[in-house]
Simulated scan of single mutants.
Amino acid sequence: MSLHLVELPMQLRSLHLWAGQRGLSDVSDEGMALHHVLGEAFGPAMLQPFRMMVAPRSRVGTLYAYSRRNADELRDTGKGSLTPGLAEVVQLDRLRSLPRAAESWTAGQRLGFDLRTRPVIRLASARDGRTESGAKVRFRKGAEIDAFLAAALLDDGSTREAVYLNWLAERLAPTAELDHETSRLASFRRSIVQRNGRRIEGPDATLHGTLTITDPDAFTRLLARGVGRHRAYGFGMLLLRPPQRRRIC
């Protein structure tokens, strides 16, 4: 399949002004505003999954995304559909891309990764439990909950890092194998997202590590699809890096 890594600078102040004009200023997750910006500029799911990277105190962010279209094709689409407001947010003249086709990879190849993800699972049955604050709660069947909280319901004693790495390994397989020794939970917080008019709190984790490709074609499809839930809102993009070093205990 044809796949490209896209890099797109975005003016943050203009993004926030545009979001406010569209009634999105009260949404706590920036991913919602970016979801709408990209959809209106390039078409639904054309740049997905994506990840916004912003340096401290910077006025410009860099959005990375995977797309089946290259930079020239995306610019042509944007030129025909951008409104004046969107043109202040999206810097089309600085949009760039690199091919990420299946031919780029080989079985057995090791790659590092940087992944922002929302590690949640859906419960197969209703359960009684406690939130992380200790409050008693009844989880309904099909509820989307933090994978670490689900593990805690089973009292298996696993750390948050171990749970999230196992969660990731299951979603990489059989396309790639996760190297647990060089992978770690780089950061964690809880964040609120808005979906279908509902505000949902959940885990917001960044994982760094190394994987080994087992199926190059399937790996390319995995990059295009993303990992986990909320992939259309800034989660689930595997940014590739050199392989990580093993941690020294």
Results as ranks from 00 to 15, higher is better:
residue 29 D to S: 15
residue 106 T to D: 10
residue 99 P to G: 10
residue 118 R to C: 11
residue 89 V to K: 02
residue 58 S to D: 10
residue 32 M to G: 00
residue 67 S to T: 09
residue 74 L to E: 01
residue 73 E to K: 07
residue 39 G to R: 06
residue 136 K to N: 08
residue 48 Q to I: 01
residue 147 A to C: 00
residue 134 G to W: 04
residue 142 G to I: 07
residue 81 S to Y: 11
residue 40 E to D: 13
residue 138 R to N: 11
residue 114 D to F: 15
residue 52 M to W: 04
residue 64 Y to C: 04
residue 105 W to T: 01
residue 65 A to M: 03
residue 87 A to E: 03
residue 88 E to N: 12
residue 30 E to D: 07
residue 128 D to T: 14
residue 67 S to Q: 07
residue 24 L to F: 11
residue 64 Y to H: 13
residue 51 R to F: 04
residue 25 S to C: 10
residue 146 D to G: 01
residue 116 R to P: 04
residue 76 D to R: 15
residue 111 L to H: 08
residue 30 E to K: 12
residue 145 I to V: 15
residue 65 A to D: 03
residue 112 G to E: 09
residue 144 E to D: 08
residue 113 F to L: 04
residue 146 D to Q: 09
residue 122 R to G: 00
residue 44 P to T: 07
residue 139 F to D: 02
residue 130 R to A: 11
residue 47 L to S: 01
residue 27 V to A: 13
residue 118 R to V: 01
residue 99 P to T: 10
residue 35 H to M: 11
residue 145 I to T: 09
residue 69 R to L: 14
residue 33 A to H: 05
residue 37 V to F: 05
residue 66 Y to C: 02
residue 18 W to P: 03
residue 97 S to I: 05
residue 113 F to Q: 05
residue 34 L to V: 12
residue 84 P to M: 08
residue 34 L to R: 02
residue 97 S to L: 06
residue 139 F to H: 09
residue 112 G to M: 06
residue 37 V to E: 03
residue 32 M to L: 15
residue 131 T to W: 09
residue 18 W to F: 05
residue 82 L to Y: 07
residue 140 R to E: 14
residue 60 V to F: 05
residue 68 R to A: 14
residue 70 N to F: 11
residue 39 G to I: 09
residue 107 A to S: 14
residue 62 T to F: 00
residue 77 T to V: 15
residue 44 P to S: 05
residue 120 V to K: 01
residue 97 S to P: 04
residue 148 F to W: 10
residue 35 H to I: 12
residue 115 L to P: 00
residue 128 D to H: 14
residue 126 A to V: 02
residue 145 I to R: 05
residue 19 A to T: 02
residue 103 E to L: 04
residue 51 R to Y: 02
residue 46 M to P: 00
residue 69 R to M: 12
residue 35 H to E: 07
residue 74 L to S: 02
residue 131 T to E: 07
residue 33 A to R: 03
residue 54 V to D: 03
residue 112 G to A: 06
residue 77 T to C: 13
residue 140 R to A: 15
residue 55 A to R: 12
residue 29 D to R: 03
residue 73 E to A: 14
residue 26 D to T: 13
residue 60 V to M: 13
residue 127 R to V: 05
residue 32 M to T: 15
residue 59 R to M: 05
residue 18 W to E: 01
residue 29 D to Y: 10
residue 110 R to I: 05
residue 97 S to E: 02
residue 125 S to G: 00
residue 82 L to K: 11
residue 73 E to R: 10
residue 148 F to H: 08
residue 106 T to L: 05
residue 69 R to Q: 13
residue 53 M to R: 15
residue 85 G to F: 03
residue 138 R to H: 15
residue 24 L to V: 05
residue 96 R to N: 07
residue 73 E to N: 08
residue 96 R to L: 10
residue 112 G to S: 06
residue 125 S to Q: 15
residue 132 E to T: 13
residue 28 S to Y: 12
residue 105 W to P: 01
residue 60 V to G: 00
residue 70 N to R: 13
residue 72 D to Q: 15
residue 107 A to N: 12
residue 131 T to I: 03
residue 17 L to K: 09
residue 26 D to W: 12
residue 103 E to A: 11
residue 76 D to K: 15
residue 65 A to W: 01
residue 112 G to I: 03
residue 72 D to Y: 07
residue 103 E to F: 01
residue 135 A to F: 12
residue 24 L to M: 13
residue 75 R to P: 06
residue 145 I to M: 02
residue 109 Q to G: 08
residue 30 E to Y: 02
residue 134 G to R: 08
residue 111 L to P: 00
residue 146 D to K: 02
residue 86 L to Q: 00
residue 148 F to Y: 14
residue 52 M to S: 11
residue 98 L to M: 14
residue 36 H to S: 10
